[in-house]
């Protein structure tokens, strides 16, 4: 049971890191995620069942997600549409595209075919499959996290970090903010699609509705993570997101498992997620009002 939650959480953490990049680093609330998550699942499923192979399929899933993010950023950049609307547009269009990718069906199974997950389980031999999977996902998500940390230490990554904070500064330093938005939203959705691709293999099917409401879940995970500890180091921030994702999955698990005592059904979980986000916002707001903890201390014009 614990292993299941952890594996679930680690797959989910990839998506949450994507949401973290757009919402927290770029300050670009991106709703493309709801579509690109399913895109990743659909692309990897069709790649595997179509015989393209697992790793090309994963790469293709990442790239298709990145492409979706790029579309959102370009709509926002070129047409001067608010970022929320740009994301909703892409998300809506992706719904049709995802069904196209799945060959006109809303649901395609990945059973009885070789996937990354089944290969890993076979690799484990006599080790219980949950343990093997857990170890694998720790390595997989961990490596992605480290790669991401590394990226945010590069000049480009640091500049991306400044984007959501102070776009004028980025412009003043001779960097095109549009390029940075494309990069950031693209990278974010690439991770989201990769997460979808892993989930499809884990649960054994891809579904066009897989991503509905997922952006709010990702946001909940990011916010839960932020309560754990405080830091301004990127390595710690991405770690927060992973912990937050696992915590979120655990909460939802208990919601499903014990919820029936208080008459909760699985369909109530989205309501719970929303309430969780609202509660996090309220707590974060009341924390910010305490002068000592405020990150804005000393800033502003009243020096």
């Amino acid at each position: 049971m614990v292993e299941g939650i952890l594996v679930d959480g680690l797959i989910f953490a990839l998506m949450a890191m994507g949401v973290f990049i757009t919402f927290r680093i770029l300050d670009f609330p991106d709703l493309t995620v709801d579509g690109s998550f399913a895109t990743g699942a659909a692309v990897v499923t069709m790649s595997i069942t179509g015989g393209l192979g697992i790793f090309p399929g994963l790469l293709l899933a990442f790239l298709s997600g990145a492409a979706a993010g790029t579309v959102t950023a370009v709509i926002h950049n070129r047409l001067k549409v608010p970022n929320l609307l740009a994301g909703i547009l892409t998300m809506t269009m992706l719904y049709s595209i995802n069904i196209r990718v799945l060959g006109g069906r809303a649901n395609v199974a990945l059973l009885r075919v070789d996937t990354l997950i089944s290969r890993v389980i076979n690799l484990g031999g006599s080790v219980p499959r949950e343990i093997t999977l857990l170890l694998f996902m720790i390595i997989f998500t961990g490596s992605i996290k480290l790669l991401l940390d590394l990226f945010f230490h590069t000049d480009m990554g640091i500049t991306l970090g400044a984007m959501g904070n102070n776009e004028q500064m980025v412009i003043s330093q001779g960097v095109n903010p549009r390029t940075m938005k494309v990069l950031g939203v693209g990278l974010s959705n690439g991770l989201v699609a990769l997460s979808g691709a892993m989930l499809a293999q884990y649960q054994g099917f891809a579904d066009a509705n897989l991503g509905v409401g997922i952006v709010v879940q990702g946001l909940a995970a990011v916010m839960l993570g932020e309560f754990l500890f405080r830091s301004n180091k990127i390595g710690m921030l991405t770690l927060q997101v992973i912990f937050g994702a696992i915590l979120y999955k655990a909460l939802m698990f208990f919601g499903r498992y014990y919820g029936y005592y208080i008459n909760l059904t699985p369909s109530d979980l989205k309501l719970l997620t929303g309430l969780l986000v609202i509660a996090s916002l309220v707590i974060a707001k009341s924390r910010k009002n305490k002068p000592v903890n405020s990150s804005k201390r000393g800033g502003g014009t009243n020096a």
Binding site: A162, N165, N166, M169, N232, G300
Partner: peptide, 8 residues
């Protein structure tokens, strides 16, 4: 605040 990124 315009010349620097406060969160960095």
């Amino acid at each position: 605040t315009m010349g620097t990124a406060g969160k960095l």
